[in-house]
């Protein structure tokens, strides 16, 4: 628990005690002592007292106890609109392309359940809430389809990246398909990123099973838990155990940031380019191999380019369709020849 949470917890306990009939003058004196210890205590206590009093309005709602739990009884793939992801501009959310209710036929699994498809364009993130309380956050340029059927809850990640916060239902397994890979959820929060046939799964809590459907024996599977990352590539599944820092870095996009830790500049640039139609290109292989670290806002690639300019002495030239990063002084020779093959994307 953080420091603020501890103070809040204590303040809330004071409020509970103060509402009880046996609250005494001695109690009041103790509370005053606690409040006078710090203005931080007062801030927490006043805030909760105000909020809790405002919550008296629940009395006006007239809800009945029988309604409890009714949310779980709704049919599953009733997609509801959820609050847009943190840091999304309002304008951005208006630009969303959302295909709700698109029905597609699955070729592989008869009888085909009705599917719901959701896409996000480049640079846009979106959160969708499922009727069972689960939540899916889509990153830039992502498309998913979802369906419920005899096999339980299923999502197809056709491209891009998504974060899953899944309510565990033993009777309704939750399966994410990413190409030939399937991720079976055992009640958890995790992200899946798909770059073509390369699939990366990072687990924030709980456990998931990652299976490779292309393996002939069908035995290529790995169960990974909190802080682990599975990299599924053409040659099989690679698992990085206990890499919590890396997992946190991989989910930075949910807060609108990209986190790099000693990564090749080419890879960092490739990450930035996922969010824009005006990509950054690197003109020189030596530059591509520069190691870089730090936290950057996705929407503020200018700060990233400034760092390249000021700290690494690179030249940044902004063109109409792309931004070129070159070694300093390399301008003259670069202009006469084709840029060196870029790497990373």
């Amino acid at each position: 628990m953080s420091r603020a949470e501890q103070i809040e917890e204590i303040a809330a306990r004071w409020i509970v005690r103060r509402e009880s009939p046996d609250w005494s003058a001695k109690d009041e004196a103790e509370l005053t002592t606690w409040l006078n210890q710090s203005l931080g205590h007062k801030a927490a206590f006043w805030r909760l007292r105000q909020g809790w009093a405002a919550a008296d309005r629940v009395g006006a709602l007239g809800f009945s106890p029988t309604r409890f739990g009714s949310r779980l009884a709704q049919p599953w793939p009733a997609w509801r609109k959820a609050a847009p992801g943190i840091g999304l501009a309002l304008a951005a959310s208006l630009a969303l392309v959302v295909g709700i209710g698109t029905v597609m036929l699955s070729t592989s699994e008869p009888p085909a359940p009705a599917q719901v498809a959701v896409q996000t364009p480049v640079g846009i993130q979106r959160t969708i809430a499922l009727a069972d309380g689960s939540r899916v956050e889509l990153n830039t340029a992502t498309s998913v389809r979802a369906a419920t059927g005899p096999n339980g809850r299923e999502i197809w990640l056709d491209k891009g990246e998504a974060y899953f916060d899944i309510v565990h239902r033993p009777d309704r397994p939750f399966v994410v398909h990413a190409g030939s890979r399937t991720v079976t959820v055992l009640g958890t929060r995790f992200t899946v990123r798909r770059d073509g046939e390369k699939v990366t799964v990072a687990v924030l809590s709980g456990r998931v099973r990652v299976e490779d459907g292309t393996a002939e024996s069908g035995t290529r599977a790995a169960v990974i838990g909190q802080g682990d990352i599975a990299y599924a590539q053409a040659r099989g599944i690679l698992v990085a155990l206990a890499a919590p820092t890396r997992v946190t870095a991989m989910t930075g996009w949910r807060d609108g940031v990209l986190v790099f830790d000693n990564q090749r500049l080419a890879d960092a640039v490739a990450d930035f380019n996922r969010y824009t139609d005006r990509p950054i290109r690197i003109s020189d292989p030596a530059v591509a191999n520069i190691r870089i670290g730090g936290t950057f806002q996705i929407r503020n690639s200018a700060a990233f380019l400034d760092l390249l300019r000021s700290a690494y002495g690179l030249e940044v030239r902004a063109g109409r369709d792309e931004i070129l990063v070159a070694p300093e002084g390399g301008t003259a020779e670069d202009e006469g020849q084709q840029p060196a093959p870029r790497s990373g994307s």
């Binding site: 953080s2 420091r3 603020a4 949470e5 103070i7 809040e8 710090s38 203005l39 931080g40 007062k42 801030a43 927490a44 805030r47 943190i86 840091g87 930075g252 807060d255 609108g256 940031v257 986190v259 936290t295």
Partner: peptide, 30 residues
């Protein structure tokens, strides 16, 4: 809170930061 989330990467620290802001606001407001 929206402002803090936009400008601070570590979401688990947002509550602590907000608490600090409130305390400082009270200190100044007094």
């Amino acid at each position: 809170t929206r402002y803090l989330r936009r400008n601070w990467r570590a979401s688990e620290q947002i509550m602590d930061i907000r608490q600090d802001i409130y305390e400082a606001a009270l200190t100044g407001g007094r």
